[in-house]
């Protein structure tokens, strides 16, 4: 469904007369998402996971590499020819409060993609919007409300209604529940799960919340500083993580129960700046197992098992120890 080949996104944030400053947000990543799959992209802030999502929908320009949607290369599709792409792939954003235009009522907000892409107008348009609201579990009474009158969960439902208005195949969900309370998050996650199986949607789910990812997604890719360091079936990665970063990340998440996970040794230091990523393996500055080779040579992206890829020189040794 979606294929990212060696995708890089760099942002030029140079200020006049201060030399060149380039943020290497995404640095040569490869990811294949099959039809009907729910794939998670996890990482901390600055890992570039949101940029990947935006690049996949051509909301930011790619520096290098290719994006294939349904086998069609959309990397350099011009503005005017992006309409079919917009019908096929839609996005749900993190903060539902700012993702809805405060001056538009719910009817107008949800109708926007329909106005842009279909000939539906007037009563027929209203009817379709009511239909969409019913799918996401909202009643028609919300039609003429404005976003500030809705709760966070209701707003996110409206955003989802808007995203599925054109029956897209691919939904990019950028931290859709991180602004919500847990009881509401659970409702939205449950709903997304049913939505995915009912409509046969493909999800690219971007999140920093590992627990949410484990619940919703079948495959997971872990990003660190613009690179994917580990990818595989969710259960494999969560139970037998091979990359030291994945291991640290998993052990850093506190469990909602009285006994905490063992082997809890927090990573030292901060995430380096994507302006100046470290040489070699970008994780070597914080890796408890770093050796000489890690500083000099970037690890290759290789398969440990058919569906378990990792970018670490010593993945096997670490697993053995």
């Amino acid at each position: 469904m979606l294929e990212l080949r060696n995708l890089s996104v760099h942002f030029d944030v140079s200020k006049r007369g201060k030399g060149k400053t380039i943020v290497r947000a995404v640095n040569g990543i490869n990811l294949n998402i099959g039809r009907g799959e729910a794939v998670a992209l996890v990482g901390e802030s600055g890992s570039g996971k949101s940029t990947v999502g935006k690049a996949a929908l051509r909301l930011v320009d790619t520096t290098d590499g290719h994006i294939l949607l349904d086998g069609v290369d959309i990397t350099h599709l011009e503005r005017g020819r992006q309409m079919p792409l917009r019908r096929k792939a839609q996005m749900v954003f993190q903060d539902p409060h700012s993702a809805l235009n405060p001056r538009m009522n719910i009817l107008r907000s949800v109708a926007e993609p329909l106005i842009l892409h279909t000939a539906l107008r007037g009563q027929a348009l209203t009817r379709r919007v009511i239909e969409l609201l019913e799918i996401v579990g909202l009643q028609a009474q919300f039609l003429y409300r404005y976003q500030h009158e809705l709760s966070g969960g209701q707003k996110q439902r409206v955003c989802i209604a808007r995203a599925i208005a054109l029956n897209p195949d691919l939904l990019v969900l950028d931290e859709p529940t991180s602004a919500l309370d847990v009881s509401v998050q659970a409702q939205i996650l449950e709903f997304l799960k049913t939505l995915q199986s009912d409509l046969g949607l493909t999800f690219l789910f971007i999140s920093h919340n590992l627990a949410v990812v484990r619940y919703l997604c079948s495959r997971v890719a872990v990003m660190y500083l613009g690179r994917i360091v580990e990818e595989g079936a969710t259960e494999t990665v969560f139970t037998t993580p091979k990359h030291p970063y994945t291991q640290a990340l998993l052990s850093a998440v506190p469990w909602p129960e009285a006994t905490q996970p063992k082997g809890h040794a927090p990573l030292v230091g901060d995430i380096p700046s994507p302006v100046n990523p470290p040489s070699g393996c970008s994780f070597h500055t914080r890796c408890p197992f770093a050796r000489e080779r890690c500083r000099a040579e970037a690890p290759t992206w290789r398969a440990l098992a058919p569906d378990h890829l990792v970018a670490c020189h010593f993945a096997e040794d670490l697993a053995a120890s």
Partner: peptide, 15 residues
Amino acid sequence: AVPHPGRAASTLSGI
């Protein structure tokens, strides 16, 4: 309602 990071996906229920 809280998804558990240490266990395989079970069902969640919101309030």
